[in-house]
Nucleic acid binder design. Sequence first.
DNA 1: TCGATCCATGCCCCAACGGTACCCAGCACC
DNA 2: GGTGCTGGGTACCGTTGGGGCATGGATCGA
Lengths: 268, 268
Amino acid sequence: MDRPEVRDLVYFVAVAEHRHFGKAAAQLGMAQPPLSRAISRLERRMGVPLLTRTSRRVDLTAAGEVFLRESRRLLAGLDSAVRRTQQAARPRRLVVAAPTGTGAGLLAEMLDAYRSGPEPVPVDVHFTGDTGGAVRDGTADAALMCSSDDLDGLETVDLVDETPIALLPAGHPLAARDTLTMADLERDEHFQAQPPEVGLDELLDRIALGELVVLSGASAAGRLGSSVVAVPVLGVPAKQIVMAWPRATPSAARDRLVRAAVATVRSG
Amino acid sequence: MDRPEVRDLVYFVAVAEHRHFGKAAAQLGMAQPPLSRAISRLERRMGVPLLTRTSRRVDLTAAGEVFLRESRRLLAGLDSAVRRTQQAARPRRLVVAAPTGTGAGLLAEMLDAYRSGPEPVPVDVHFTGDTGGAVRDGTADAALMCSSDDLDGLETVDLVDETPIALLPAGHPLAARDTLTMADLERDEHFQAQPPEVGLDELLDRIALGELVVLSGASAAGRLGSSVVAVPVLGVPAKQIVMAWPRATPSAARDRLVRAAVATVRSG
DNA sequence: TCGATCCATGCCCCAACGGTACCCAGCACC
DNA sequence: GGTGCTGGGTACCGTTGGGGCATGGATCGA
């Protein structure tokens, strides 16, 4: 059984997404007829119809739905494989993905510890909202993630546990309390369960201005300034900050970084 | 950046495994020169040398090691994608992978429950030692596995917990005991930590004959006959029998099978 | 019924893949 | 140190098949 080629997957994904041969062909920078034939060929080789075409409508068969999902996964995997390979060839250098707003604290300590350890290698920090995506697609060698994120396919070590705290403006009625509950927070008109994806500085500014109340983790408590107050919140499970990296990708430099990170949180 | 083609991955894996262009070409059923060119082209496109060739010796670079691992993973993923797609097209039918020797008990009950449920579909049972492999590569829709197996990439539900028991011939000196420890077992000359991969019947026969003593799970206790005795073993963590299936592969028929399995173990 | 839309088919061309022949760098053996 | 052998690279050529263009044919709306 001869395997489909990568080209066939790309073509199929384009057609499946547009549900239209003409538009898919345009996106692919080719004419419509060869695309039609490529898809027929693919279906013939796989022995499975993937699309139902009436001349007015293109739809996916059940098998087509499955193959679309799988094709996307495979193409992403291929790109990530190429990136990882190129990364392995480049003069040794590490990329760590960190959530936007993790700037100064934990990460800086970890990197300091790593740089003063044996055989350090230059480290780039890649700030992104989707650290899991970065480490999965080979953009980053390791990522700071949350234990509640999807960690499938990744190896992890626990770093610090983020006991939940609320960040409130200093003058807020709840700011004087010793502890809070989620019910307290949810009654507040400025409370946002999903804080906006902005830098920590802006977030703190907006809290200080009284525009915002958010749930955060204890690691943020050290960098608040005087106009933002942290109060522990009860009844919310503590999350862990973890360091994650792809399974089965040996890298001595990354292992040293992980060890430095673990040592940092143990000692500090 | 143009992606490598599947053909290139196959070629690269062959050369990397043989560390010899001539032999790889022979295995691929082609001549050596086009293979050499294909590999050079691949390296040029990826911008990374994958092999070091002296005219006497072919070796992998560090990047080549990475790309070999990734290529194997991708090719396996492609084959599994094709199988899953073909499976989705076939007149609905489920394949369940079960460890050799799970024959009559739990599985039969589950299948009975499933068949008497709504919209049942023909079920094939695929006996294999590597049920995880079968469900990952698309050969099976679901698998019975052990919670201690590698469950990465799979979704699971717990079924029954296998409290550890030792299977002994009826006349064995330890057979009269209420409980055993691993130390007891390890002193026995016939104890095998890794039982041979044979059917349950043969296994029981060999135990009854006094050739063998093995560690098993409580679910086997119901099918022993009179000449084999089960004794609980202390100090060994209990394993769970789980039902596992690949993530992100929706299948109503499989979901019904999973529900039937869960219902079976809850009620029985 | 006519036109518009859109996928399939027929036909041609060319890029690229693979085969054959040959070259040349190590190595072994005399 | 020649000489032969092994094994990867290079040159050149033939063929396959992927892609473009023109056209057919089906469906749907007006």
